[in-house]
Amino acid sequence: MMDLAPYLLLAGLEGLVMASVLMLTALGLSLVFGVMRVVNVAHGEFYMLGAVGAWACAQFVPGHPALAFCVALVVAPLLVGMLAYLADWAILKRINYDPEGTIVSTIGMLYIIQQLTLMSFGPDARAVDAPFYYTIRTPWFGYSSYKLFTVVMALVLVAGLWVMLKRSKWGLVMRATQFDRETAQNFGIPVNRVYSIVFAIGAMLAAIGGVLVVPNQQAHYLMGGDPLLLSFVVVIVGGLGSIPGTIAAAILIGMSDGLLSVFFSPTAAKIFSTLLVAFVLVFKPEGLFGRSNRV
């Protein structure tokens, strides 16, 4: 059996990879919740569509897998974003973003997306080539360099999102809408457009997560369930709608999930993390990292 130190190193690396993908998907969920005050249950399906999109790109783009990967990184999120924009226009706007109605409608969307994927993409899991293969060998184990690349990509994207939110006019508009919808509207901010775009961006973040993860895993029509649940966990532990909180929570959950399952059975680790969420919400509803928020 491996010594404890390399064991922990490996668990740490795995946790880091998980945390970075989780950061992207959870940020999407968190952004939507923060600005629009709605929970999107179909979020995991946007992630799945990203992965399926990456597979489709790999089929249609000839040449080196890296080329298809780059195309997928642009095309898949764009398509998913458009779909989300459409869903927002066709459904969510019409129920006026009623929080409970949104949950019910997005559950409906979840079923529709899943079933359409099953009918077109099929029931099998399909693999996508990584843009590059290189295994980093340590004295105890080997590790995929692509996984580390995922971490870098996620960090770059999150940093970009951060800058956009904090520095750009768009970010200001979003934050204004988040802070007070009516006042924002009075100041001439097209709140309805902001909502549609935020919903689309949230979906795109999930889709990017899907594209990044698919060379490590495979595309499968039921793959959206776990990321949805984990994103929930992260968003709640981080404080609903708080972006720094979400990032911190993604790292905490990603790392602890890796480490916990070293010492406990993985199912027990999952029980622990779901109960953690429940108890955080019950006893510290602003999240472990959030300031008191008007939820």
Binding site: V39, I103, F232, L240, T274, V277, A278, L281, V282, V295
Partner: peptide, 11 residues
């Protein structure tokens, strides 16, 4: 509200 939904979901 939403927290309640999620807490029940998690339990």
């Amino acid at each position: 509200a939403v927290s309640f939904m999620i807490v029940t979901l998690m339990f």
